[in-house]
């Protein structure tokens, strides 16, 4: 039980895919302009990572080592395409919000990285726990960067519209005094750098103890 909990939680802090393993940075930097984009992207990654881990773990004894990369890519690309088609048909607003970043999940290093490093060597149950933990870690990292960028860069927090709620929250003072660079690509790199430094400092501090 303790080992299962460890498997589940390692992706959140100790092996956080964004700040510790530093995987999947392209979508992290590109999509983190708004909190709603970060949440949508995280949901897509969670679905694809969960099912790719399950399928690859289930087929780990069938797929020989020399053809594992093309086999994994076919599985991952198919799952992403299925996600894209289902979202387009049944949740068009989320599909529209994610735009070009949805098909880009195919090349997200976290998906292939976890398939290669974990799912291909472990049981289906452990792979499910790994996928959930890593997805939560990715979602937290991405949403944190998006929250900071949107707050400082635009003075807003954009969520999904629901009922009478339009989806956008304007934050006083920040809205009137935005730091535009935060909404642009250099802002993403700056925030990523500071947060990575914080995670590294926190890890080394724990080791020293």
């Amino acid at each position: 039980m303790k080992a299962n909990i460890k498997e589940l939680t390692k992706g959140i802090f100790k092996e956080n895919p964004v700040f510790v393993i530093v995987l999947g940075l392209c979508p992290v930097l590109g999509v983190s302009t708004q909190v709603s984009n970060a949440i949508g992207m995280s949901a897509g990654v969670m679905f694809v990572l969960l099912f790719s881990n399950i399928i690859i773990s289930a087929l780990r004894k069938v797929i020989p080592g020399s053809i594992h990369i093309p086999a994994y890519i076919v599985v991952i690309a198919s799952l992403v395409t299925i996600t894209e088609m289902v979202m387009h048909a049944f949740v068009p607003s989320v599909y529209s919000a994610l735009g070009v970043y949805l098909p880009l999940i195919v090349v997200n290093c976290i998906i292939l990285g976890r398939a290669e490093a974990f799912a291909s060597k472990n049981s289906v149950f452990d792979s499910i726990l790994d996928a959930i933990g890593m997805s939560i870690g990715f979602a937290l990292g991405l949403t944190l960067i998006a929250l900071i960028r949107e707050l400082f860069g635009s003075g807003t927090i954009t969520l999904f519209p629901m009922g009478n709620f339009g989806g956008g929250i304007n934050i006083p003072w920040f809205y009137d005094n935005p730091i535009r660079v935060m909404a642009l690509a250099p802002g993403a790199l700056l925030i990523m750098g500071y947060l990575k430094a914080f995670f590294d400092w926190n890890t080394s501090r724990k080791k020293d103890k």
């Binding site: 087929l59 069938v62 797929i63 020989p64 053809i67 093309p70 086999a71 076919v74 599985v75 690309a77 198919s78 395409t81 299925i82 088609m85 289902v86």
Partner: peptide, 18 residues
């Protein structure tokens, strides 16, 4: 054959979803 089988299953799943 292994790759072909995986591709065939994926193609079927995609066709069904489509």
């Amino acid at each position: 054959l292994i790759l072909l089988s995986i591709c065939a299953v994926c193609a079927f799943a995609l066709a069904l979803t489509n």
